Amino acid sequence: MALEGVTVEAIAKSAATTKNTVTGALTIGRSKAASVYAGYGNVSFDRLLLVAEFEGDEDAINAVTDCDDEDLAYVAQECRDENARLARQAEVVTALEADGVTVVTSWNYSTMAHLSRLTDAADDDTERPTLDPETHAACDGHAVFLTVNGLGEGDTETVPLCTKPELHQSIYRSYRTPTSEPVELTEEEADAQAEAKRAERRTLVANNRAWDTSQTLRKEWIVEFLTRKKLPTDAAAFVAVTLTRHSYDVTGDNSGGAAVFLGHEGYVAREALATMVEATPTKAGYVSLAVALSARENRTSRESWRNPNVSDEAYLLQIEKWGHKLSAVERIAAGYPAPDTVEEDAATGTE
């Protein structure tokens, strides 16, 4: 029918379905990958839509077709966030290379070294200062290791390194210091200590990314939650506790999240909510709950999992009670026992 020029509205009416369903079906039909998976006969409509969305991205397609149903939304958002991160990384690489900087995004332990591990001092020198980044810029092996861990201002980091460490000396001398002097770490001990720090950093990076993904899904869940025909019986209690114990968060919430949660944006969004209640008093409960949820949500951050606190814990446990499935990193912030350490590939982690 679509090939014959029949409109989406007419097709939906003829098939007794919604326009969104028809649009989704057409999207699936235009996707080679989704058409293949549709032929298997056991892939849900929602998964097929995601396969179409990630056309050409085999890693993302494998992720959304292999996960459990309850994890589908999270996995899909995780893939979107990763693609956005990679796009941002490509932009930064292009900008740095335009300035004549050699950029490395994947670490190779056999051919690279941090300037903090190198010196130009002789092997028998007592003083072994590390290489200065500005001075090292003249070295043939000078480069920067780029890490983009998200889209925020503080998520991009560049660290100077040398891709020709053989042109310099290790800061670790080839012999031990006398026992009467302070004991220095051997190179093996230093490497072990550095690896422990790298592992901690990889967990930090992975969980920060997981938090960003979870935040996106949490807000989407709130929007859907506020469309329910009936609010939970304890919604008023949550609002009351927020307006009293967390009044500072309410007054400091300038994000406009409450209006966005209820479908209003722009400078007059708050006024639109007030007008809504004046016109339809039965909407008061929804507006009050949206204000409370916005205040509590706006208070959360990556610090919520790094340094759990009772306020964010109570908030996350409350929305979990109302039906939101907490992700692994959200569960940490909610006070659940931490899962096994989450680490990303060492090649992409910040050194």
Rank of each mutant, 00 (worst) to 15 (best):
G141I: 12
E157R: 05
D140E: 14
A137G: 01
E157W: 01
P129R: 07
H142S: 15
H136Y: 05
T126W: 12
A138V: 14
L151Y: 01
L167D: 11
T156H: 03
W107Q: 06
P165G: 13
S116W: 10
V148I: 06
G141Q: 10
L118F: 09
T147S: 15
H136N: 15
G152Q: 06
T130F: 00
N149C: 02
D132C: 11
D120Y: 01
T158V: 15
S110I: 08
S106N: 02
L146S: 06
L115H: 10
T147I: 06
C139A: 15
G150Q: 12
D124K: 11
G154P: 08
V159D: 09
C139G: 13
P129I: 09
T126I: 05
A138Q: 15
E166W: 15
L131C: 07
L115K: 11
E127I: 14
E127Q: 13
H142G: 04
G152A: 12
T158P: 02
K164R: 15
T126K: 05
K164V: 09
A113I: 03
T119Y: 07
K164P: 00
L146P: 14
C162W: 09
P165Y: 13
L115C: 13
S116H: 09
H142F: 15
G154V: 02
L118S: 03
A137I: 01
H142P: 03
E157P: 00
P160N: 03
L131G: 07
T119L: 03
E166N: 14
A121R: 03
R128P: 01
D132K: 02
G150S: 12
D124G: 03
T111H: 05
